[in-house]
Every structure is written in C-alpha cells, then in structure tokens.
C-alpha cells in the first residue's frame, strides 16, 4: 500500500476522524446514560447522539441580524479541526502515531484553541447571553488552565520525556503516574472538567442563568459541529489522561482492552462528578483554581523535581 493511502487511512479512519467520531458518540451516550441512572432515570437509547447530530445537520441554519456570519461559520470548524489534530497525536491502544519529543506541548496548545473559539463565538453572535457566556469561558480558562498544565507537566518530568508515547511507555516499566502523583491526577481531572465545561463547572453555559451561553444563537449545522467538537474534546481529553496517568495501553496482552477500560473508568468519574455537586459561581471557580488547585499542582511539581534531583 502506498504511503499516502496509509496516511489518509490514519487521517480519516483510525485514529483520525472516523474513530474519534464513533468514540465521541459512544462517550456522549455513556455519559448521559450513567448520569441518568444516577438520577434514578433510564436515559437515552444508544443511537441518541447520532440521531441528535443528524437532526441538527438537517435543520435550518439561522443567525441573528448583526452577527458576524463568516466568523460564526468558521469558528466551529476551527474548534473541531484543532481537536481532531490533537487526537491524531495521541497514542491509542498501543498504536503510536506521529510521535515526537514535545508533542505533549503541541497537544495542550491545540486543546486550548476550542476554548478560544468558544469565547469568540459568544462575543461575535451578539446575544447578551452569548457575551456573558463568552466572558465567563475566558475567565474559566484562566482558572483551570494553569493548574492543568502544571499537573500534566509533572507527568512529563517524572517520566523524563515530553512525548506522550514515551511517557506512556515508561510507565509500563515503572508504575502508573497516578500512583506516584495522586494529587497531580486529581488536579488534572478537575482541570479537565473545567476544560470540557462539564457540570459542576458548566459555568459558561449555565442554563438557568444565561440560557445556552455562547451557543444561544447557533442552530442547525453549526450547532451540530459545536456539539461534535465538544464530545471529541471529551474523548481526546480522556485519552490524554489515560496515557499520561494510567500508563496508556500498558504492556499487557490485550492493549486495546486495557486502554478502553481505563478510558471508561475516567469517563465514569466525570459522569459521577457531574451529578454530585451544584454548579459553582465563576468567582468561586477562580478562587478554587488559584487558591487550591494551583498551589496543589505546584506542590506536586516541586516534590517531583526534588525527588528527581535526590
């Protein structure tokens, strides 16, 4: 098979668009189902995310007068493209893609693009709720991003590499980073909840306060792309943490199986967290971010560096 065909396969099918797309749908369904069960309900059937997506794609696409049409059309695609690119760089079940030293930094950079697009979408679609939601998403970004980066940086330092694949591989020789850096893992999980704007940190899209936040004015195709990009972010975020903290696919016999099991475990933790707490206020989140999470992450980092030196 020619090289370009293989590259195309990787790009479109595995671990590219097709795989991430299926994972996104599956993750959304599992998440909704688990949350529903925890709330004493049944939850949606397995095809629900797909039906929602197709329905939105086939719906009329309208924007209010005065909104920036070009930006509103491009932003969801930018968000989706960034997430997809990040997805290509993350090792999945033992398959090591375009791995290079420092790809962790690139992935982290790519993963912050959706938040920026989200903020701009809120600002440019001129609804009041969008503007407030956009501002909040930016504030939230500053609250979780620093502790999140520090926690992830800790894994790079302890495993002596800035390549996600090497970090994962190293752990199969030693132990899971989660066991060495429990505090770092906790901070990273909380940071991920903030990054994904999931309950209880769904502040930028708090339904009872500002309707649907930055996405209030989006409909049809654009909304579908936003939702898809949100779900893919969940997938990429979870895969990233599996690689960094849970030893990736590990050196066991069935790498795919162990990878999936670990990913589902993290997803379950996210779902449980989303039903257990009331939504925080944005200033409370900033407080938590800077007064609790950041010092904890810093402490973890210092301990790691000190132990490394010793």
């Amino acid at each position: 098979m020619p090289d370009w065909l293989i590259a195309l396969f990787h790009l479109l099918v595995f671990p590219g668009f097709g795989f991430l797309f299926l994972c996104a749908l599956a993750f959304q369904w599992i998440d909704r189902r688990v949350a529903a069960r925890l709330q004493g309900r049944v939850g949606p059937p397995w095809f629900q995310p797909l039906a929602d997506l197709i329905k939105l794609l086939a719906k009329e696409d309208i924007l209010p007068v005065g909104a920036d049409e070009l930006a509103c059309a491009v932003l969801p695609m930018v968000s989706l493209a960034a997430v997809l690119t990040a997805g290509l760089l993350i090792p999945v079940s033992g398959w090591k893609p375009n791995s290079f030293e420092g790809d962790l930094v690139v992935v982290l950079f790519l993963l912050s693009i959706p938040m920026l697009a989200y903020f701009l979408a809120g600002w440019l679609s001129i609804s009041v709720y969008s503007v407030v939601g956009g501002n909040r998403s930016l504030l939230q970004y500053f609250a979780y991003e620093v502790p999140f980066l520090m926690a992830l940086g800790g894994t790079a330092i302890v495993n002596g590499s800035w390549s996600i694949a090497s970090i994962a591989a190293r752990q199969s020789q030693t132990v899971w980073t989660m066991l060495m850096q429990p505090v770092g893992f906790l901070v990273a999980m909380i940071g991920l909840i903030g990054k994904l704007k999931r309950a209880p940190f769904d502040i930028p899209k708090a339904k009872s306060e500002i309707s649907a936040g930055p996405l209030t004015e989006f409909s049809g195709r654009k909304l579908a792309l936003w939702y898809l990009s949100r779900d893919m972010q969940t997938v990429v975020g979870v895969f990233l943490l599996v690689n960094l903290f849970l030893g990736g696919s590990g050196a066991m016999l069935l790498p795919a199986l162990s990878f999936v099991a670990k990913a589902l475990l993290l997803l379950l933790m996210l779902s449980v967290a989303s039903v257990l707490y009331a939504r925080l206020r944005i200033d409370q989140l900033v407080d938590v971010g800077w007064k609790v999470l950041a010092p904890l992450a810093l402490l973890q980092l210092l301990v790691t560096v000190w132990m490394g030196v010793g």
Binding site: R32, V42, P44, P45, Y129, S211, A212, T216, S219
Partner: peptide
C-alpha cells in the same frame, strides 16, 4: 423520563424543534 425517547428540554429557541 422522556430523555429515553430522545426528548430534551432546550433553553434557547434556536435549538428547539
């Protein structure tokens, strides 16, 4: 629990059917 029938209560008119 109408979510099992796919029914969601939306906040914005732009999202609703």
């Amino acid at each position: 629990d109408v979510e099992r029938l796919g029914i969601l209560k939306e906040a914005s008119p732009r999202h609703a059917d």
